[in-house]
Amino acid sequence: MSLVSRLAEKSWETPGASPAVGGSDRPPAAKVVLVLYFGVAAVLFGLVTSAYLMRMGMPGMGHGEMGGWRPLAEPPLLWANTITLFLASFAWEAARISARRGRQAGIWAFSAGLLGIIFLIGQLMLWRELVAAGHGLRDDPAAAFFYLITALHGVHVLGGLYFWARALLGLGAGPGVALRIQLTATYWHFLLFVWLVMLGLFVAT
């Protein structure tokens, strides 16, 4: 039964009319909650993006020139970190495919998490580099947004590492492994997607 026909159901006419809605045809709760969380995170990063554009005085955002805004530098490390996150996502996809086919996914999953950790370390180094180049929090609003956005993203990466650890610990623990790896991989793909959008924002402005 489609969602539309379910919502169009005449509730008052239904006694005994095949109430065959159970639990077996539903997707796993963890999958549903993950999709819901993507919605929450999308709003979070969407709002920060709006705030960024408004603060930089983008035409049509209601303010005009705000003062104090200068474009952010783009050090090579920014691109290196992006490639690292790409590789992490690639490794997760390989782990997901392996788990789905019933093959050993351990090495891929392990590498994926390791790449995630390298990405986080890279981001911290990027912060230091930017601060050293004079892009402080106080007098550079673009940099302040960069630190804020990368911190929010970094917290989500830490969350991803938590699920990575859980997935690693659960390897070989029965039928739920494939699902766990699939969901963790999806989460990491989402992190990559968010990062690419944010990167586009930094680079384009």
Partner: peptide, 14 residues
């Protein structure tokens, strides 16, 4: 998630 996933048999959304 509970509303979407844990409704008992016959408990349609409507």
């Amino acid at each position: 998630t509970t509303v979407l996933q844990a409704r008992t048999r016959g408990m349609t959304l409507m």
